[in-house]
C-alpha cells in the first residue's frame, strides 16, 4: 500500500513512506483538533475545578456515580459541598471556596459494626465449603447459629478501597486513620450490620449486637449477644430497648464516662467501644480508665 502510493507520487519508499504518514498524521491531528474545538460541550468551569479538588477515588460514598458526577451535582446545587465523605474537611473547605460558600464544620461519621462476637464466641457453627463470601454464605441456612450476626468472610474488607478494614478473629476491625467514611462497607454487608454513626467523641459506645430474638434464643447462639433485658435503659435514657435489642440514641450521647453505670449493668457484654486503636469491650475501657486514674494518683505526689 505504502509502496503503491509512493510509486504513483514518483517517490522512493524511503522518502514516500514518511511523507505519506506525516501527511496523514497532519490531516487526522488537525481534524481531531478542530473536532475538539467545535464539538466541545460548554460547561460550568467550576465543575472541572471541583472535580480536580476531589480525591478521584470514585468510591461512591457521596451517593453519586463517581467524582465527576458528584462535582456536577455540587455545582448544580444538588449536592452539599461537604458531600464528599472520603475527602474529609479539607476537600469540603476547598469545594466551598470554589463555590463561594461558607464552610461549616460537620461531625465526622464513621462506620461501626453491630456485632461483637468473635469467632469463638459464636455458637452452632457448621462446616461451610461454599463460596467464601458473606453474600453467598448468607443464603445458606445454618452456617452459624446466629442469623443476625457477622459471618466473618470479610465482604466488607474486600469492599474497602482504602485498606481501612481487616479481619480479626472473625470480626472486621476498623482503622479510622485510613477510613474515609465512604460507606462502601455499609453496603457490602449482606446482614446490614455496619452503620455510620456520628463520632462526637473520640471514642463512641456501640451496641455490639443485632439479634432481635428473645434472650433464651440469643443465649443459645452467642456468648455476648444482647439479651434485651433493658438494664441499661433503666439507668440512662440514651439507651432504648425495642424488640429484644438495645440501641443508642446518638443525639443524646454525651461522654463515655456518663454512661458508666449503665454499661456496668449489662449482663451480656454486648456493649463495645469503638474509636481508639481497636474495638474494646466496654468493661475493659472502664477498667483501664480506673487503673489509669489510680496510677496518676500514685505518681502525683512524687512529682510535686
Amino acid at each position: 500500500m505504502l509502496m503503491n502510493v509512493s510509486n504513483i507520487l514518483g517517490l522512493s519508499v524511503l522518502v514516500g513512506g514518511p511523507v505519506i504518514l506525516v501527511g496523514l498524521g497532519l490531516l487526522l491531528a488537525v481534524g481531531l483538533s478542530i473536532a475538539m474545538i467545535k464539538l466541545r460541550v460548554e460547561q460550568d468551569p467550576r465543575i472541572e475545578q471541583v472535580e480536580a479538588a476531589l480525591p478521584g477515588a470514585n468510591c461512591g460514598g457521596c451517593g453519586y456515580a463517581g467524582c465527576a458526577a458528584f462535582a456536577k451535582a455540587v455545582v448544580e446545587g444538588k449536592a452539599p459541598v461537604t458531600g464528599c465523605t472520603a475527602g474529609g474537611e479539607g476537600i469540603g473547605q476547598a469545594i466551598a471556596k470554589i463555590m463561594g460558600i461558607k464552610f461549616e464544620v460537620q461531625v465526622k461519621t464513621r462506620p461501626v459494626i453491630h456485632c461483637a462476637a468473635f469467632e469463638h464466641q459464636r455458637k452452632g457453627k457448621k462446616p461451610y465449603h461454599g463460596v467464601q463470601q458473606c453474600s453467598e454464605a448468607n443464603l445458606v441456612a445454618g452456617v452459624q447459629g446466629c442469623t443476625y450476626g457477622c459471618l466473618g468472610f470479610g465482604d466488607c474488607v474486600a469492599s474497602c478501597k482504602f485498606g481501612a478494614l481487616h479481619m480479626d478473629r472473625g470480626l472486621p476491625e476498623f482503622d479510622y486513620s485510613k477510613c474515609t467514611s465512604c460507606g462502601a462497607c455499609v453496603k457490602a454487608c449482606p446482614r446490614g450490620l455496619i452503620e455510620m454513626i456520628p463520632f462526637t467523641q473520640e471514642a463512641m459506645l456501640v451496641v455490639g449486637c443485632s439479634n432481635r430474638d428473645p434472650a433464651r434464643v440469643v443465649r443459645e447462639v452467642c456468648e455476648v449477644g444482647c439479651l434485651g433485658c433493658g438494664a441499661c435503659a433503666k439507668k440512662s435514657d440514651v439507651f432504648n430497648v425495642d424488640q429484644n435489642l438495645a440501641s443508642i440514641d446518638y443525639n443524646k450521647f454525651d461522654t463515655l464516662e456518663s454512661l458508666r453505670s449503665a454499661c456496668e449493668k449489662c449482663p451480656a457484654g454486648a456493649l463495645v467501644v469503638f474509636g481508639r486503636e481497636k474495638r474494646i469491650p466496654v468493661k475493659d475501657v472502664y477498667a483501664k480508665t480506673q487503673s489509669d486514674t489510680q496510677a496518676e494518683a500514685q505518681s502525683e505526689p512524687v512529682n510535686s
Partner: peptide, 21 residues
C-alpha cells in the same frame, strides 16, 4: 498541540520504510 503527532509520524514512517526496504 499536534507537533508530537507529526514528529512521531515522521519517525515511524521512516522506520517502516526502512523495515520494508
Amino acid at each position: 498541540q499536534i507537533w508530537l503527532v507529526l514528529v512521531l509520524s515522521l519517525i515511524f514512517g521512516a522506520a517502516l520504510a526502512y523495515t520494508d526496504q
